[in-house]
Design a protein around this nucleic acid. Structure first.
Lengths: 184, 184
DNA sequence: TTCGTCATGTAAGAAGTTACATGATTTC
DNA sequence: GAAATCATGTAACTTCTTACATGACGAA
């Protein structure tokens, strides 16, 4: 009792490990960085912050901007310990993928030839689009340098690599089936 | 009113499109095929079957095995129509990835050099393991031939391709950082 | 003065999982 | 005769999302 914080709380803790932030800023930071492999809603953040503070892993202080209330949280020494501990624990890290697109492809045999290929193209272009977005972020990241240090850059590269792999798999399949696809 | 079935129900419908099955068999079929990109629990399947039957998309008939009760569901003509319709709708197909491993990697800067590399290795070996499992399934699939027709095989290849891409990204990073990794 | 952003908080609901309950049949 | 598998069903719980409520500040 007392302890036992879940994954969302550790994500919040991790973000505070990069620097003091308000709940609002944490939400923004997630949107700007890990959103492609983790999401968190506002309604999770504020309770998580309370939990973390109660456990002594973060400390918050009020820093209102004018008359607008604001509370900035910082990671504590024991919070840093808990974070490192969590990162180090080789607890099960299930790769959770929930993809309607792949499900549909799996069932695409129920479709006619052309409709099947249209579905394939939809899945392909979805990943292609994701690759484009990630490439833009990559440009900005390399320009900004420090903000995105090596590990965040790695997760970016991983996202790029596997969506590119999906595009390639679609193209290989289309070639096998003998359809023209992806003009690029 | 009546309609408006969700994704889980369509997954059940898709499985019945491959042949009549009991709820129990549907669960098993999911475990044997799409489990890497979709899961469904027993507690979802039986209500979904009721829903689908009420909507006239499947029809169930009792086929007890001895004294053990059993209900086999078959897709109806209008069920097949609804399935094709769903597969064809280019409704948003968000790629939902929820991966604690990548989250941890993102925050790995909080760790020392060695601990960071250990985490990297954990993520790498997780995907490598998945590649191994998928390769075994691929062998069986190519041997069994018909059961796994082209589209299911495609989703298999996609899984293989992107986990291999993750492994490669880990190796590339490890090389960049100048550590020896992945002896393969 | 209106709109977008900053900022926090929560109530209600959807979606999904776990766990239990029950019992027949098959396999070792 | 014990254990695994077949088979269905559901109650309770957790987790997460959506939506609303409130209000200050800055820019147009």
């Amino acid at each position: 009792m007392g302890g036992e914080v879940g994954a969302p709380a550790y994500v919040v803790l991790g973000m505070l490990g990069l620097g003091p932030k308000s709940g609002y800023e944490i939400k923004r930071a997630v949107e700007l960085s890990i959103r492609f492999f983790w999401t968190i809603s506002q309604a999770q953040i504020y309770p998580a912050l309370e939990q973390l503070e109660a456990a002594g892993l973060v400390s918050g202080r009020d820093e209102p901007r004018g008359r607008r209330p604001r509370r900035i949280y910082s990671i504590t020494a024991s919070g840093r310990g808990a974070l490192e501990d969590w990162l180090g624990r080789d607890q099960s890290m299930p790769f959770e993928l929930r993809d309607i697109g792949m499900v549909k492809l799996f069932f695409a045999g129920a479709l006619g030839h052309d409709e099947g290929l249209a579905l394939l193209e939809a899945v392909r272009s979805r990943s292609e689009e994701r690759v484009r977005v990630l490439q833009v972020i990559e440009q900005e990241a390399r320009a900004a340098a420090d903000e995105w240090d090596t590990y965040p850059l790695l997760t970016l590269e991983m996202g790029l690599a596997f969506h590119q792999a999906m595009v390639d798999a679609c193209d290989a399949f289309a070639t096998r089936v003998g359809a023209s696809m992806g003009s690029r």
